[in-house]
Design a protein around this nucleic acid. Structure first.
Lengths: 347, 347
DNA sequence: TTGAAAGCGCTAACAT
DNA sequence: ATGTTAGCGCTTTCAA
């Protein structure tokens, strides 16, 4: 590879002049330099630039699961909003694991100027090395337990889950199964609480018996649903706190030959990728995905440009209950039967 | 941030000694150095290391669509196989666009030591800058038109598509619609050819009327299916050349209230993410996904270690026809009717 | 406007 | 085993 010195020599100027030319300053020999660059096939060495400038022109994007369509779409939003600014993206997966996240973030130290992070758990934190370097961080979809020091882009998890709960309650369901995500992650905890609180406000109390805590992955949804279905008095409605667990739960329902919504009504937080193709079409709490990523990217861009307020911003995007065909009132036997309604008691 | 000099000073040794310590050589003052490192919170500057060593310890992964589950899974395979080697991954999206890909690759010059690339089109190529730098490349799922200079990890596109064609033909279908991907990309072209050739071998000729060329994205599958269904003699079977177009096509079929497989049999290349949940369960040409990525990563790792043969390796992984419930013989009316069978003629 | 020179933080001879 | 020194390729004072 040819260096800036090769170009300088070939153009008959000093290295500094070439550097100025490259950085957009007016120089006399611009024609010669231009030609020398073409001839030598010179490309500025980004590493050397970084060493000098202290900036890498890269940002890190750390997500718990890239094969989760939500994150895949969010990443698309981030990309769309970062390309213009000539920032490259380091995309990393943490597999919903705090340990892995620590590794990943550690590896990112010194490689990125900024970070978009969807923390695996709220109890984790940004490594001190990153903090000391003053790397701006925007939290995506999830926060840390500490009163947040960083910008964040969330959705109304409580409200969305609450909508689902109210909807099921108002259809007349009393035995409602809940498949929550890990309570150690923001969406897991908030949806969990939002759902149960809304249920309570409707005069329903969720017995532990009907609550399962998964890990946001498909298998946990499958196991949770399976276990709920095996209850002596299985739920007449099911809420899954994210797309992947919903997919798992649906597989369990299918296996058990449970009819939806005839036997069991079903709502999930997050749309499923092929949700429109399923029979029945799934009623879901839907939310922006690409847009969430895009917003995170633009908050970060502002920080990088330095024109962002000192205090962190917390953006909460709205959810919407998309009522489709997977819910209906509970079967008659349950609607009437006092004896069946043991675990979730009205009022 | 503290530098190696700070540590050296604090430990009372020279900078070189600290460097040796960091790189695993035996030094006398290791205790003092260790302590100095902790005290100062020192982290080696990766940029400086890169400048010195000429290596970035990063690899680029360039895919056409990260929200395509196939690539999401392949990336997982790559990650799983690269982590140990302490390589960081630069994941980039090209949106199936050659122009975008050129941009992306350009941006990667100097930032990566190696590249895993799923080219948007066969006619593109690796930028000369990357080539001159001797960056090893492994092609993922797609090749370049030129007799390949690089390692590649493919699947048996022709064979897989051929299996689908033979299966439909042997069920008795004669009016078979084909939704192919872009012929400018390996899987698009090979599946297209494989399908049509297998059809021909069964004594069927596919009329242009029944062939649509999409772009591997959902919308194109939707439009293609819609157009095929509007034919005076619509196909009794449909083949979609990838997962996303299959999803689009299924939406069109659903909208048109076509029954599967009663009215139209359906096969796709690639499993659909929620395929098991669909009714009927989809018959597909399935193939390794995570494994394909993992293999690409290990080929690349070998190259990076320098213990790979000089000549490029071309790995072709097997596909399997997963027969499920979305295909059956064509409706009686069509089976008998000579008059209906105008566009695909037997023998 | 330009060139000379210093230096970003690290590694790798080389000499001791 | 250790220190000294040069240098990776670039940007940026400082003089001229």
């Amino acid at each position: 590879m040819s260096t800036i010195d090769d170009v300088a020599r070939s153009a008959g100027v000093s290295r500094a002049t070439v550097s100025r030319f490259l950085n957009g300053y007016a120089v006399r020999a611009s024609r010669e330099i231009e030609q020398a660059i073409t001839e030598t096939g010179f490309r500025p060495n980004l590493t050397a630039r970084s060493l000098k400038s202290g900036r890498t022109r890269s940002i890190g994007v750390v997500v718990p699961d890239i094969s989760n369509p939500f994150f895949a779409h969010a990443v698309k939003g981030i990309e769309a909003n970062s390309r213009d600014d000539e920032y490259n993206i380091f995309l990393c997966n943490t597999d919903e694991s705090a340990a892995r996240q620590a590794d990943v973030l550690d590896n990112l130290v010194g490689r990125v100027d900024a970070l978009i992070l969807a923390p695996a758990t709220e109890s984790a934190s940004v490594p001190s090395a990153l903090v000391r370097m003053g790397v701006p961080v925007v939290l995506l979809d999830r926060e840390f337990a500490d009163p947040s020091l960083y910008d964040s882009v969330l959705v109304d998890n409580e409200g969305g889950a609450g909508d689902a709960a109210r909807y099921l309650a108002q259809l007349g369901h009393t035995r409602i199964g809940v498949i929550s995500g890990p309570l150690s992650a923001t969406p897991g905890r908030m949806r969990h609480e939002g759902f149960l609180q809304a249920l309570a406000a409707e005069g329903l109390t969720a017995a532990d018996q009907y609550v399962r805590i998964g890990d946001f992955r498909e298998l946990s949804g499958y196991l949770a649903a399976k276990s709920l279905l095996s209850l002596p008095e299985p739920p007449t409605a099911l809420f899954a706190a994210n797309n992947l667990m919903a997919a798992g739960a649906l597989k369990a329902l299918r296996e058990a030959q449970v009819r939806i919504p005839g036997d069991v009504s079903f709502v999930s937080f997050d749309d499923l990728e092929l949700g429109e193709l399923l029979v029945p079409r799934l009623t879901t709490v839907s939310r922006p995905t690409v847009e969430q990523g895009a917003l995170a990217a633009s908050l970060l861009a502002e920080r990088l440009r330095g024109d962002a307020p000192a205090t962190p911003r917390r953006c909460v995007m709205e959810t919407r209950l998309s009522v489709r065909d997977s819910c209906c009132p509970p079967p008659m036997s349950v609607q009437k039967g006092g004896s069946f309604v043991a675990s979730l008691d009205r009022g």
